[in-house]
């Protein structure tokens, strides 16, 4: 979920975002200054005295204002912009932590990769990173073009079918950073958010270790009635919970749903009420998303499934 205020572009949280913030302020100042010059010239032209109007009226001002002045400003900006672009897109070393994020209509598949590029931990709509280290994201798409954007950490980069784009992000302090799909991807494109959570190093290691163990080990016991309903209502056809029979791949992985910060791809805070509401009729919350409404389930049944899912942490 994006924060809104202060504008995230102007509130950077990592080394791939703050140079752009500096650039933004420089550009805003440049725009204001040039605007002032143009307005001053226009003001003199319209309301100035005879002498001032004579100065502004003539080919000389076209040369000065229209050619020389922009030439100087633009040359400086061009060099600044090019060098900054180059430094922000420095070659990736290869020893960074890697995560593959796949844009899907209208959520994000997340897979933490090992050294060989094999996925080891599966998740969705949420990314955990360690503080102070660059993390390389492999951006892919499963269907149409999406664009991955977490403004406080970096600019955006598109996810294009048939291609793999690499992006680096890094957070310098622990916290949550909202993201959003930026390329129109049809239907509920507006409701396709994302969350990055940065942890201190040890906390991050602990989390990853726990999750690796969870991928390999048995699932938490959970509410047995909920587990049964999860299977019988058809949830497992689309969702996976590691270590259970539920291994559907069409929808988000629910192995860690209980600990997720948001629901519906970054659009709702995750709590018992919202989770129940989402399962019961997600179409009312995020119209045209791919999950059918489960209005045939009773409140008790929904409660049971919710209780079961809350255990999946």
């Amino acid at each position: 979920m994006l924060e809104g205020w202060p504008p995230p572009i102007l509130d950077p949280a990592g080394p791939y975002a703050w140079p752009v913030t500096v650039l933004s302020w420089v550009l805003l100042a440049m725009a204001a200054a040039v605007l002032l010059v143009v307005f001053a010239a226009l003001w003199l032209a319209l309301f100035g005295g005879e002498r001032a109007r004579q100065r502004v009226g003539g080919t000389r001002i076209v040369w000065l204002g229209g050619i020389v002045f922009p030439l100087v400003v633009l040359t400086a900006l061009l060099v600044y912009g090019l060098t900054l672009t180059a430094s922000l897109s420095e070659r990736i070393r290869g020893d960074e932590m890697r995560v593959r994020i796949t844009g899907e209509m209208w959520w994000w598949r997340v897979a933490y990769l090992d050294g060989d590029g094999q996925p080891v931990i599966h998740d969705a709509n949420e990314l955990h990173i360690p503080v102070g280290e660059p993390v390389v994201l492999e951006l892919e798409s499963a269907d149409v073009i999406h664009s991955f954007w977490v403004p406080r950490l970096s600019g955006k980069l598109d996810m294009i079918p048939g291609r793999r784009n690499l992006m680096r992000i890094q957070a310098d302090e622990p916290g949550q950073f909202g993201g959003q799909c930026a390329e129109y991807c049809g239907g509920p494109h507006a409701l396709m958010g994302f969350v990055v959570i940065a942890h201190e190093r040890e906390a991050f290691e602990r989390l990853m270790a726990a999750r690796r163990a969870r991928e390999a080990g048995p699932p938490p016991a959970g509410d047995p009635r909920g587990a049964e309903l999860f299977a019988s209502a058809g949830c497992a056809a689309c969702h996976r919970i590691a270590g259970t029979d539920a291994n559907g791949l069409a929808g988000p992985d629910l192995t860690h749903i209980g600990s997720r910060k948001t629901l519906g791809a970054g659009i709702l805070p995750n709590n018992r009420g919202t989770l129940m509401g989402w399962i019961g009729n997600s179409q009312a919350i995020k119209p045209n998303n791919r999950m059918p409404p489960y209005t045939m389930l009773s409140a008790a049944e929904l409660r049971a499934i919710t209780a079961y899912l809350e255990e999946q942490r």
């Binding site: 650039l23 933004s24 600044y80 912009g81 090019l82 600019g155």
Partner: peptide, 13 residues
């Protein structure tokens, strides 16, 4: 001119 500056465009595009 601002959005012609690539890194700025990465943000506001």
């Amino acid at each position: 001119v601002m959005v012609a500056m690539v890194p700025f465009d990465w943000q506001v595009h």
